[in-house]
Design a protein around this nucleic acid. Sequence first.
DNA 1: CCCCGGCAAGAGCATTGCTCTCATCGTCGA
DNA 2: TCGACGATGAGAGCAATGCTCTTGCCGGGG
Lengths: 236, 236
Amino acid sequence: MVYGDAVNASRTARERARAELVSEITAAARRQLAETGAAALSMRAVSREIGMVSSALHRYFPTRDDLLTALIVQSYDALADAVDTAAAAAGDDPADRWRAVAHAVRGWALAHPHEYALIYGSPVPGYRAPADTVPAAGRVLAPFGRALRDAHAAGTLAGAPDPDGPLAADAARIAGALEAPELPGGALLAALTAWSGLFGHVSFELFGQFDNAVDDRDALFAGAVERLGRVAGLVR
Amino acid sequence: MVYGDAVNASRTARERARAELVSEITAAARRQLAETGAAALSMRAVSREIGMVSSALHRYFPTRDDLLTALIVQSYDALADAVDTAAAAAGDDPADRWRAVAHAVRGWALAHPHEYALIYGSPVPGYRAPADTVPAAGRVLAPFGRALRDAHAAGTLAGAPDPDGPLAADAARIAGALEAPELPGGALLAALTAWSGLFGHVSFELFGQFDNAVDDRDALFAGAVERLGRVAGLVR
DNA sequence: CCCCGGCAAGAGCATTGCTCTCATCGTCGA
DNA sequence: TCGACGATGAGAGCAATGCTCTTGCCGGGG
């Protein structure tokens, strides 16, 4: 909103300077986020790093939460990019695409733990989830949706009992958002369980629930991906 | 460590006073945590609430993180209690016990969102997971382990391909910690996927990933519990 | 009985988010 | 062309935070 329009080519010098500064700010903030985590992200430290006075920073991001929101959106985008390219490189088999997506999510999470925590961990401050973040969050889901759609089209998607009542409407809405309205509700809900299960596993690993319990995390995850892929109806 | 031994009956008056103060402090802190969340938990506010000067508080909890650690342990205990009683009330069928445990976890999480976020969300400060929290975390898992053991004894636990390599040792160690060393590794790992899937679902719901997507959260969760119970080999 | 040690209190330091005011300077319209 | 407007950066300031230090007080074990 206030901080916006990152790349608007031919505008006045002032606007170009502002866009440049905004991205310089988020870059510094992202650096600080990667080092010390969201809890320690400080306006003054960011302003110090880019040689600015803290009050001037507030002109671009009126509030610390606004800065965090920008970082959240950027993190969603970065994760979505990683997932996209992994899915594209995985070929046509929907099961392989699921595996690629799952491993891309985990790989990105392990490489950017603080950013992952920012978007999938507990909401940072008092909080409110600005509408800006919703589409970015949806981008992450898209390759998974395409794998489901293709498997359904190929007839290899396992069936599941369809829901009734309001849940059926929810399923239909989500299928629409995934641009796969032909997906049956039962399969969609099963896929949703696999999806949340994937992030549950990654969060457990990242947030230390496997500490002192599991050493071979790679093998554990590989097995979980197979099991969850079966839940989604994509594997086997 | 520093703050400790809550109930040690016959000690000197000074020690009894200290124990009483410690629990008064954590009570006030828990109240504040429930209202405003962990991020806003402030030493000074806690000390203000119990009519103490902030510097005196530091004698009992040298650091804000120490206070948070105490709250983490208490939260694990509270969740474990809720899960325990739900499992006890669920009767003998392992599938029913799984359903009871799962719904108890979600119910407690919805009733105490900030406490849930504290223990299963992103780690709050700079981070480190003190060893104190590990046994408390294990207590939550215990009723689930008993359901698995009983199902295995009754021969109703679904089989799963056993792991090899280091993962087999991990599985054996966890089975031992659950006091069910006879559990086959494959079944144990499948159960672990169901377990992390359960918390993934609850976290998604609590942290807003289902916002603007799913309305009928109860039905969604009920379906997920059935699917995950099948993954664990307990349902069906 | 008396002295050591646990204890509360207060002042103080560095840091934080955020607001206000002031001076500067680019931009756009008259 | 030039002047007013608005965006910008600097600085001081406020209330709050976590944490440390010093100063006394007072209870209980030697």
